[in-house]
């Protein structure tokens, strides 16, 4: 038997008996892979659970810095992309090439949209001085301690004003002015944290909240980026007409991966954005 024993079926590997055999193996493989993904994220969820149970107040306070609206929009975007991914599988199963390509394209577009909004959120935070790591603490000093005119402060999200602008327009030229103003204006709302008696530990724990926030959303974001790469590759194959009702495994597997990414976000959203 030669290396390419299945001449009529270009995508059937030699060591499988038939396409169903190959599909079943691939499906089991991707599910096993999803299991490793679940466990991979579990470490972060565990860290989150530990620190939230230790410092519920800190988490509640810190979560105010996250923009619920952007989070909700991003959730919707991901759910839409999940729908189109599932739809794409259906198209592939039914041999609808055009619809398949369209659905894949929409999924990719949603993924880019998600990352774009994520970028806005990140850049806004970094602009405010909330960055992961060593220096967070010193910035938080400015943010939560004595509000200084030259130092940007934490913004407690206010209804409307400003935030939507960032979300929609992506113009953050006015961020600094806005943030400064916000810090000054709302300094009184941060009162408990300005108490000199409550320094040190709470600020450290705030830093840990943001560390966890960045790790969780960052790792999730990396998965979205990987998903984009895979989906673009599949789109190019779909355009070349590789997929048939008997050979559509890659579409199905990539969609499963994409749903898992969505699924993780479904948990991240309330855990990070909806603490009150």
């Amino acid at each position: 038997m030669s290396d390419h024993g299945h001449g009529d079926k270009p995508f059937l590997a030699h060591h499988f008996e038939d396409e169903d055999h190959q599909f079943d193996s691939g499906k089991l493989g991707i599910w096993a892979f999803l299991v490793t993904e679940v466990l991979f994220f579990s470490g972060l969820f565990c860290a989150y659970a530990i620190y939230r149970s230790m410092h519920p107040d800190v988490f509640q306070y810190a979560a105010q810095a996250l923009d619920t609206k952007l989070g909700a929009i991003n959730t919707s975007v991901l759910i839409l992309s999940s729908l189109t991914a599932a739809w794409a599988v259906r198209n592939a199963q039914l041999g609808q090439k055009k619809a398949l390509c369209l659905n894949l394209a929409i999924t990719i577009a949603c993924a880019f949209g998600f990352m774009g909004i994520k970028y806005l959120e990140y850049s806004h935070k970094i602009h405010l001085g909330i960055i992961p790591g060593n220096s967070t603490e010193q910035y938080l000093d400015g943010a939560f301690g004595e509000p200084k005119a030259e130092q940007v402060a934490f913004v407690v999200p206010q209804e409307g004003e400003g935030e939507e602008q960032h979300a929609a327009g992506g113009e953050h030229a006015d961020d600094a002015a806005h943030a400064e103003g916000g810090g000054q204006d709302h300094a009184h709302e941060l009162a408990p944290w300005n108490d000199p008696a409550v320094d040190g530990i709470q600020k450290q724990n705030l830093a840990i909240f943001f560390a966890i926030y960045y790790c969780m959303t960052g790792l999730h974001g990396i998965h979205v980026l990987l998903g984009i790469v895979v989906l673009v590759w599949l789109l190019s194959r779909a355009l070349r007409g590789h997929f048939t009702p008997t050979y559509y495994g890659p579409i199905d597997f990539a969609a499963l991966y994409w749903h898992l990414v969505d699924l993780i976000w479904i948990y991240l959203f309330p855990l990070l954005y909806l603490i009150n």
Partner: peptide, 23 residues
């Protein structure tokens, strides 16, 4: 089941060493 947890642990360790995230 187990090895992914090592993966995330070491990623956090790398973050800790480079950025000092503090976990």
């Amino acid at each position: 089941l187990a090895t992914p947890v090592l993966g995330i642990t070491l990623l956090l360790l790398i973050m800790e060493s480079t950025l000092g995230i503090g976990i």
